[in-house]
Design a protein around this nucleic acid. Structure first.
Length: 483
RNA sequence: GUCCCCAUCGUCUAGCCCGGUCAAGGACAUCGCCCUUUCACGGCGGUAACGGGGGUUCGAAUCCCCCUGGGGACGCCA
């Protein structure tokens, strides 16, 4: 069997988008499953939309996701260069070849002229397509147009025959030849247009499989035509279902966070992003949903990619991320939470000055869907002035509760710091002293220490807070009662 | 408008290719119960879907056609 070679070809116009991330992931999984080669190629022929930092950001995101490539602009390889802007000469020589065999020609139309003709056809209810007016220009006419200052672009010449695309996911798809107009392969400034550059690159880089979004399906016949005109076999195509927003339109900024980096910054784990994205348009043959990356690699085949578009469901991502957080090593989670705690000002000058940081974070590890939520849960350890919430208030109106809190105060006063780390023993003593048990015992303690009816386990709170802060809070709550 | 793709619970999906084992399975969400000093986690259970209409067939979620609905493409963007 031939060695599989696939590529991910982003254009550096911004952050790595969730949809592109899934494309990258599927290609990577496919390559790794079959022991093939995964190539990163930068499609930067669009100088207008080019963003300087974008390539680096995209590379960072891919690395964060753990999608490593075997050939690419940063590491080279036998089929480089891997940036389209460095390959312009290659495209031009192939365009020249097409001109020589009569499958491409100069077009002198201006973008404005093309736009008006497009509008006209649209108004007539026709498929907008180039009318071929420059195909039969004589050399005199060309000279005239060039005198006007027009720089020609190069158009591929279509023949009107239907085009068959054999798609791994969709099966045979046929396109009417008449609906495909002659399209531009080289712009008037000499840069290659997308449909041309991809084909040339995929040929030169010996790409065997092209897995991409369904939005590219209707481009495919154009590309197939180029392969045929050049005498090459097209690679195998697989057009993956789109990812849509909750309103069933293409996922975009107005649906909220759509860049990988925004999820990273909110504290999503790469394994959760990978796992969730894998399930958008693909399912495992064993029907499992929690799939670590090795399992993903092992189970991934294109025949289990679905055909219908999928809606990006943040709720399920949150569940899955929460799952991976719970499963993760506490030290790792602690480290990942530090930036959020610092930003909130909880860590002072340096994380090391906060004792028991690990216990603090792990005491709330089961409660988070994403790591930035850590601050909402650990405020009880850091905020000095804790207000008493409404539903806690009614507990404080009961004399029994106050008695428990007073008992707690006395017990802690008689305790050492060491005793505080043995919360069970300490609470037992409060129980004896106050003669309360169950909720009536624990709720007042919780409220005295945190001002709330919900939170981490009491024993963690006791030991994390320590003797002094416990006493301060108890005194505070009791003083509220008296006033 | 034209071309192309798609159509199973609210959402992601299994099943469809090779029709009967599907009174349609799982997951998220939701509801209830249990566990539990609280919340969360976890466990158990419930509600919930084959878009519509025609065929073919003894039998259709599965095959065919039409309709409807959704998406994509139609650029000197990728």
């Amino acid at each position: 069997m031939e060695k599989i070679r696939v590529r991910f070809a982003p254009s550096p116009t911004g952050y790595l988008h969730i949809g592109n991330a899934r494309t990258a992931l599927f290609n990577w999984l496919f390559a790794r499953h079959y022991g093939g080669t995964f190539i990163l190629r930068i499609e930067d022929t669009d100088t207008e939309r080019h963003v300087d930092q974008a390539e680096g950001l995209i590379i960072q995101d891919l690395q964060w996701m753990g999608l490593d490539w075997d050939e690419g602009p940063d590491k080279g390889g036998p089929h480089g260069p891997y940036r389209q802007s460095d390959r312009l000469g290659i495209y031009q020589s192939y365009a020249q070849k097409l001109m020589e065999v009569g499958r491409a020609y100069h077009c002198y139309c201006t973008p404005e002229e093309l736009e008006t003709s497009r509008q006209k056809m649209l108004a007539l209810g026709q498929t907008p397509r180039y009318d071929g007016r420059c195909l039969h220009l004589s050399s005199e006419q060309k000279k005239e147009l060039e005198k006007e200052g027009r720089q020609p672009s190069v158009r591929f010449r279509t023949l009107g025959d239907p085009v068959l695309v054999n798609d791994l996911i969709r099966g045979e798809v046929s396109f009417e030849g008449q609906t495909i107009g002659d399209f531009i392969i080289l712009r008037s400034d000499g840069r290659a247009a997308y449909n041309f550059a991809v084909v040339i690159d995929d040929i030169k880089m010996e790409i065997t499989h092209v897995l991409r979004g369904e939005d590219h399906l209707s481009n495919t016949p154009r590309q197939v035509l180029i392969y045929q005109a050049l005498g090459f076999d097209p690679p195998k195509f697989g057009h993956m279902p789109m990812i849509l927003g909750p309103d069933r339109t293409r996922l975009s900024k107005r649906h909220g966070a759509t860049s990988v980096i925004s999820y990273r910054e909110k504290g999503y784990l790469p394994e959760a992003i990978n796992n969730y994205l894998a399930l958008l348009g693909w399912s495992s043959p064993d029907e499992e949903e929690i799939l670590p990356r090795e399992k993903l690699v092992q189970n991934f085949t294109t025949d289990r990619i679905s055909r219908s578009a999928a809606i990006f469901d943040l709720t399920k991502l949150n569940w899955m991320n929460g799952h991976y957080i719970r499963e993760a090593d506490p030290d790792r989670i602690t480290n990942l939470c530090i930036p959020f705690l610092q930003e909130k000002g909880y860590l002072g000058v340096s994380p090391e000055t906060v004792p028991r940081l690990r216990e603090i974070v792990t005491s709330v590890q089961t409660k988070m869907s994403y790591l930035s939520q850590v601050t909402e849960h650990v405020d009880i350890y850091f905020e000095e002035d804790l207000s008493v919430e409404n539903d806690s208030q009614s507990w404080l109106e009961m004399p029994e509760s106050i008695a428990v809190i007073q008992a707690l105060q006395e017990v802690i006063e008689d305790s050492t710091e060491q005793d505080l780390s043995d919360g069970h023993g300490l609470i037992k003593r409060v129980q004896k002293k106050s003669a309360q048990k169950g909720k009536n015992l624990y709720m007042p303690i919780r409220i005295a220490l945190t001002g709330r009816t919900t939170g981490p386990e009491l024993v963690s709170i006791l030991s994390i807070l320590g003797r002094d802060r416990c006493l301060r809070r108890i005194a505070h709550v009791l003083s509220l009662e008296k006033s």
